[in-house]
Simulated scan of single mutants.
Amino acid sequence: MIVDSHPSMRLALSTLVESHLRMPVVCSAATAEEAYAALLSQRPSIVVTELELGAAHEGAALCRRARSLPLRPRVMVFSGSSSPDQVAAALTSGADSFVHKSASVTELVDAIRQTACGRRVWLLGDTGRRQESDRRRISPLTPLTEREEQILALLLRRYTNDEIARELTLAGQTVKNHVSNILHKVGIRNRRELFLDQSALSA
């Protein structure tokens, strides 16, 4: 299933998938609500979606709803932005892969193929460096709160605890507790591992 608010992008992606991967595109959608209805009726095995579907992060909400299904599809976010906020939204929503729209046709086709096979692919903008993890699945065991998502976005920018505390006007111990909870939820032991798995991001 292809999910994008622009008809031309839906057509281009559908043509690409069917011609290069020989995968049938069973449905497409312009909004998160249309996409969720199609998920229930068509049951696609993989979803390629933009994050911005009329409102901020509606694509992330779609990812979370897809994860709740008994036979959940693989989800690849295909976004025009690879800002830390966007990547954090994809990560915390449980997306399997994240590909920036600057990726070449070859990279995009390979990313869809790898995601369909259960491998994680991270192509973040101009860095052009793919992060795949067969070692573990980096997605929240339980949903992150809105505050935790804010802090995760700052962590991905390499903010220290003190800098996060100043940015969000929080006590240092409160930030420390939030960071510990976030790392636990996404299955990462420490900041070093977080930066290793997100090494394609700039500071």
Rank of each mutant, 00 (worst) to 15 (best):
S8V: 14
L16G: 02
E18W: 06
H20P: 00
M23A: 01
P24A: 07
P24I: 02
S28Y: 12
A30T: 08
E33Y: 03
E33N: 11
A35Q: 00
A38Y: 13
L39C: 15
L39N: 04
R43E: 15
E52Q: 14
G59C: 10
R64T: 12
R65E: 13
S68Y: 00
V77Q: 07
F78W: 15
L91T: 14
K101C: 07
S102Y: 00
A103M: 04
T106V: 13
E107I: 00
V109A: 11
A111G: 02
I112G: 02
Q114C: 07
T115I: 05
C117P: 00
T127E: 06
R129L: 12
R135D: 14
R136Y: 02
P143A: 08
P143N: 05
T145N: 04
E146Y: 06
E146F: 08
R147S: 12
E149L: 09
L154F: 06
D162K: 13
E163L: 04
I164S: 02
I164V: 15
R166D: 06
L168E: 09
V175T: 10
V175N: 10
H178E: 14
V179A: 10
I182L: 06
I182N: 09
L183H: 05
H184Q: 13
I188L: 15
R189D: 11
R192I: 10
L194Q: 08
F195A: 08
Q198R: 10
L201P: 08
S202F: 07
S202G: 14
